[in-house]
Deep mutational scan, measured.
Amino acid sequence: SRSVIRSIIKSSKLNIDHKDYLLDLLNDVKGSKDLKEFHKMLTAILA
């Protein structure tokens, strides 16, 4: 869910600018399909 993804971003080791950017992107995501794609992208970034 959106709140879980937000929590993953906030607890990541990324610097604050990257976190803010990803949180802004997350706010722009519409629909469950796009949310799944965003989660895939985030997982790849944090891997």
Rank of each mutant, 00 (worst) to 15 (best):
D28W: 05
L35C: 03
L25S: 04
V4M: 10
D34L: 14
K33S: 06
S11K: 13
S12C: 04
E37N: 12
S7G: 11
L35M: 08
K13G: 11
K30F: 05
E37G: 06
N27H: 09
N15I: 05
K13D: 08
D28N: 14
D20F: 08
E37F: 10
V4H: 11
H18L: 15
I16L: 11
N27S: 09
L35N: 01
I45K: 03
N27D: 06
L23D: 02
V29L: 07
K30G: 06
I9L: 03
S1I: 15
R2Y: 06
Y21W: 09
L26W: 01
Y21E: 06
I16W: 09
Y21I: 08
E37V: 11
H39D: 04
H18W: 08
E37R: 14
L25W: 06
D20Q: 15
A47W: 08
M41I: 07
S32H: 12
N15G: 12
I45V: 10
L22C: 01
A47M: 10
D34A: 15
A44H: 09
L42P: 04
L26P: 00
M41D: 03
L22Q: 00
N27F: 05
T43F: 11
R2I: 14
L23C: 03
K13C: 06
H39M: 15
D17W: 09
D34I: 04
L46E: 02
I9Q: 00
K19V: 05
L35E: 03
K13S: 12
S1W: 15
L22V: 01
L23W: 03
G31H: 08
L14N: 01
K36T: 09
A44F: 14
Y21G: 04
H18S: 08
D17V: 14
D24P: 01
E37S: 11
A47P: 04
K13P: 09
K13F: 11
V4R: 13
H39V: 15
L23I: 07
M41N: 05
L46M: 08
D28A: 12
D34F: 06
K33H: 13
I16G: 12
K36G: 08
V29M: 08
R6N: 05
K30Y: 06
K10H: 11
K19I: 04
I45Y: 06
R6Y: 07
L46C: 03
A47K: 11
L23N: 04
K10G: 05
T43Q: 12
A47R: 12
I5P: 00
L46H: 01
K10E: 12
V29I: 12
A47H: 09
T43D: 09
I16M: 14
D24A: 15
K36Y: 13
K40G: 05
S32L: 11
L42E: 00
H39S: 08
G31C: 04
N27G: 10
K19L: 03
K36Q: 10
